[in-house]
Structure formats: structure tokens, C-alpha cells
Design a binder for these strands. Sequence first.
DNA 1: TCAATTTCTGAAAGCGCTCTCATTGAAGCG
DNA 2: CGCTTCAATGAGAGCGCTTTCAGAAATTGA
Lengths: 338, 338
Amino acid sequence: MVARKVKLSDVARRAGVSPATVSRAISQPDLLSAATLKRVRAAAQALGYVPDGAARALASGRSMTIGAIVPTLDSTIFARFLQSLQSTLARDGYQLLVASHEMNPAAETEAVRMLLARGADGLILVGADRPRSTLDLLRTGSAPVVLTWCGAPDFACVTVDNERAGYLAAQHLVELGHARIGMVTGRLSFNDRQRARLAGARQAMREAGHEIPDWRVNEQDLSLAGGRIGCAALLQLDTPPTAIIGTIDLLAIACLQEARARRLTVPTDLSIVGIDDVDMSAYLTPSLTTVHIPTGRIGQMAAEMVVSLLENGEAQTHVDLPIELVVRRSTARAGGKA
Amino acid sequence: MVARKVKLSDVARRAGVSPATVSRAISQPDLLSAATLKRVRAAAQALGYVPDGAARALASGRSMTIGAIVPTLDSTIFARFLQSLQSTLARDGYQLLVASHEMNPAAETEAVRMLLARGADGLILVGADRPRSTLDLLRTGSAPVVLTWCGAPDFACVTVDNERAGYLAAQHLVELGHARIGMVTGRLSFNDRQRARLAGARQAMREAGHEIPDWRVNEQDLSLAGGRIGCAALLQLDTPPTAIIGTIDLLAIACLQEARARRLTVPTDLSIVGIDDVDMSAYLTPSLTTVHIPTGRIGQMAAEMVVSLLENGEAQTHVDLPIELVVRRSTARAGGKA
DNA sequence: TCAATTTCTGAAAGCGCTCTCATTGAAGCG
DNA sequence: CGCTTCAATGAGAGCGCTTTCAGAAATTGA
């Protein structure tokens, strides 16, 4: 720290105006005469003035900061989500504050508390499955909250129909004649997205007169390793499934890999469907049949929603984005005839 | 906003102590007698008190916030990096403020300015390749700065030897008898990691008496699509390379996919090497030979370094983490004999 | 037992900015 | 030409907390 920090009053002195004027030059430039504005800007420039965010936040009550809490940073999906949040927010002058909870509800509550304490003007969370106490904290807080992926009636949210995603995946398999399908899912507790996707798939099967018994549902970590383990377990059953749904693409990709490692040909020996439609899925061989979830769009809309909640006080508070099945090469008719 | 915000003085009143005491209960609890502390905590709890971060930051001069600027959020590598930054920082009570610049130097400068304005106590950046003006801004600022991946002499940094990474990749190919290798790289401007990796590979080839001419280096976006385009371009040359290095795994994986799409067998028809060793690489078929970069470790060390710079003022300021070649199944002897 | 410490707590002065309110000319109007 | 209206600026009171300085109470030592 070489020089004493340049503050607003220094700029004011140099420009020969009052501090109030300098403040206005920053936040409401159109209130000033062109000449004054120019003078103040020159002074600020010359001194290398950088406004103190904490002081601004304290005095104005707004931090121009939005907090986002995702399950984990280390995920293609949430990375893209954050990317799109951040770029959308940046357009409106907001900065993203990021936290993750690693699938631990207590950590999430802690993160909410911390973001609120840090003065986040708004909060963006993933899913609606959290302890009542956290929900209360969110409702109590003065900051607008937007839920994503899954919503709750009394919160603003940007959702996709996760149940339908599972439904579409399974329905596609039914249409191909599959009756015995297995599922590799992530941990179901504290994760409404996973539960919904599973439930949707089950619903589709049921409507077709089939079931997905619990023992053909394998709950794993959301990782390639988890996916392979889950897939292996399903394939080792006495009557292995003819098709597998991974509730996220990552899991499905791992299934693809496990199948190949076992010298099974996808899709002739085994059909595989994912959900998400990550970049990689289109590029695999075979390319992955999956349900497209508009991840980037979710981020963009969520960002726009908080900002609008913040600035207009009001907004369309429930947005459900469309999803669709993307049929590629990892699925085929049951019984091996492609 | 239902209730008026609970403030420190409210807690003080309820606990029957002075505001100063409440403040101490928060930040230096051991200065208080057990009884007082307990009383204050009870009051805070009862009122649901959440300290105002902006006020704390203003009064104390520290925001307990660390800013990180990555090229892009939407990348396996940086996602893991941020993940590890965030969890390490969280341990010490710091919060991560994230920005990305999308390969735009001006955006990066802007991000630095913004993070500084937001009162970030420290900054973590990727690479050292940026305009002098940005570097000056960083040096001037009172906040400690840690560079990662690539360093600069007058900054604290956590690096890996990117040049050596390229070198190791190429050397491996040389040992397998490859003389004609192609490279798919990311954009080289404003990206010292990419340049270093390319330079290292060239160096290894040169030492073996070969060259990598410019027309066998294909510069692409860091995406699967880019990698495939780059790979296709190299394979369409009159004398296509017998091996390809992707300067990041993502690019190498795309090459693997492009090769398969062209019915080339990897590694017999074409050897492919990546750099990074992302999760996926081990699970592919064929699994990817690559150079392991300890991404998570970089994040952890960088986080520890800023914190220590911040709290002890001093620290070991240059750390270079080891990297190593990981030989898997995507490389074989030149000429097709595995 | 009394001075010398050591603990614990309170008073109060800011931290750097925003924003309401007041003030001052200048412009507009009949 | 006197009065209102408006645009441009200044004065000053906080925003909610930290922290220095001091004083009061408890502890110690001889």
C-alpha cells in the first residue's frame, strides 16, 4: 500500500466541488451540468479514484451484488449456468458472488446466511428441496430469491419440467420396445431434480404397463466413476435391463463407457439415454440420445428475473422453459435390431 | 421486507450491553467473559441478527472476500479450480467473488477494477499475459495478488511448467517414433499457457531433430467443436501427422472423436495426446494419454497463498507444482504397430 | 490490606459514501 | 418587471459497524 487511498472528498477538492456533486457524478451523472461532470471526471481520472464499494453499499443499501448457490462448482451444468448468470448480471452492473454446498443442506443454509450478510441484493438457488428453516430464512430476508430447475409456489423461479424430462427419456425407450429399463441416478435426498427425473421415468413406464423396480435403480455419486459403478451393477443383474437412463448426461456417458469396457455395443446390445444435453453428448460415438435442458437459458432468465425483481419490484415470477428429447445414436429398438 | 433490519445496537440493548461488546462477541469472542458472551449470543440468536457485511467492511477495512478472475467459467478445468479455491477459502472464512473475461483483456481489466472496488481483500488471476496497464493496476492496488498456471517474477504465483507439459507430450511421441506431429491449440494471444505448451512441444521435437511447422499447428476455440475442426484440418493435409497433441484435454478428446468419425483407429492409425488430465480422459475408450496438471491443487495453494499473504503479510510466494506424463491407450508406436 | 496489574466493558469517533433538504441563480411568464 | 419554476449544487445527517482509549471491576502479590 503505497499511497493513501484516494477518496471521494479528494476528488471533490481537486475538482472544486462538494462531495455530493462527485457522488452524483458517479451514480446520477445526468443531474450535473456537462461542465461540472467533465471537471469531476477529469479529477477522478487524475487521482485514480476508485469508489469504495463497502461505503457505497452501506450508504445506499444496495451492494450491486447477486449471490448464487449451486450444489457444486465442479460440474459442466452448473459451470455453464454460472457463466450465463455472470454474463447476464454483468450487463446490468451486478457482480456474481458464488457459493457451493456440496450436497450438504447445512452448508447451504450457511451459504445463504453468508451471502445475505455480505449484502447480496438478490439470491439465486438451485432447486427447492431444502429444510424449512432455510426456506424461512430466504422468505424473511429482504433480498429477492429466484429458484432454478425446480421451483416452489411461493418463490420466483425459472424451472424446467424435470419429471417430464424423465418421462420423455423413458417414453422414447418404450416406443423402441424396451420393457426392462434400469436407471442410474444421483443421490436422491436433498435433490429434487433427481427425484423428479426418476419419478417421471417411472410414470412413463407405468403408463406403458411396466415398472422400474427399486433394484433396477442405482443411486450413485454424480461422477463418471459413479456412473460406471451404477451401470456395472445394473448389467450384473440376473435379468439385466435392455436400456439404461442416466438422470444426467454425465452418468449416461459413464454408462456408455462402462458398456464399451464390457464389449457391449451401444445401441444394439444396450440403449442409453441421458438428460441435460451437454456439449459432449453430441460428439460422442455413439452420440447420446438425451433430453435437452436449456441450461444457459435458465441462467440468463434467472439473472434477468432477480434484476427485474430488484429494479421493478415486480416481474413474471414463474417461468418454465421448454425441454425436448434429442434422439441420437445411443438408442435402438429393443432386441438388438437397430 | 417484513421487519426492520435487526442491527447490532438492537442486540446490544436486548443483551443489556454496549454495542462495542456485541461487536467483540462477533469478531473477538475471547475478549469477553463467558457469561457476557453467552448473553450476547442468546440475544443475537433470538433476534435473528445478521451482521451487515458492508458496514463491517467499511469500519474494519477488510471485506473477507477474495476475487478470482478466470478466462471462462464454462470449463472443466476452471470449474474444478474455482471449486477448490472456494472450499479452501471458505475454511478461512473468506468468500469467493468470481468474474470471467472470456478471453478479452479489456474485460479482465474491468473485472480487476470491479473486484477492487468491491473491496476484495485479495485477487487470484490465471496466467500473467495481460497489458502492462492491468499489471500496474494490480501492483498499485493494496490487495495481494496471486497468479496461477503461469507466473511473473514480481507477483506471488502458483504455477505449473506449461512448457514442460508440452515438452513431455511431444517427447513421449518422439520416443514412440513419431516425427510428424500436428498440434491443435487454443488461441495463442492473451494466453500464455497455450503458447508455453506449444513452445515446449516444439522444443522437444527440435531436440529430436524434427520440427513442427506452423501449418501443422491449428489454432482453434477451446471447445469440442474447435478441436474437431482443428483435427480435421490436420488430417486433410497432404502429409497428415501420425500423431496429434491437443494443448488441453478437451481439444484432444475432440480429436479422438474426429478420428473415430473418420474411421481412424486410435492409436494404431493416429496417436493422440492431451494436457490437463481431466476426469473424463481416464474413462474414454481409448483412454487418453495426457500430462497431468494438478488443477485442484493449484486452487488450493493459491487460496492458501492469498490468505497467508493477507494474514501473515509474508509467504513463500512462488510455488511450482509438479506435472507428469500419464501414458494411457491413445498413443502407440508410429507406423501402426501398437 | 493496598497498590499494581489484569480483565472486561463502555463511550464515542470515525470508515467513505449517499441522499434528503435547502439554497442559489437563471429562465419562463403574464 | 416581479413572481414562479426549475436546474444545479452544497450542507450535513446518517448507513451499521469497528476500534481506540479509558474507566471499572476483579485479581494478584507482598
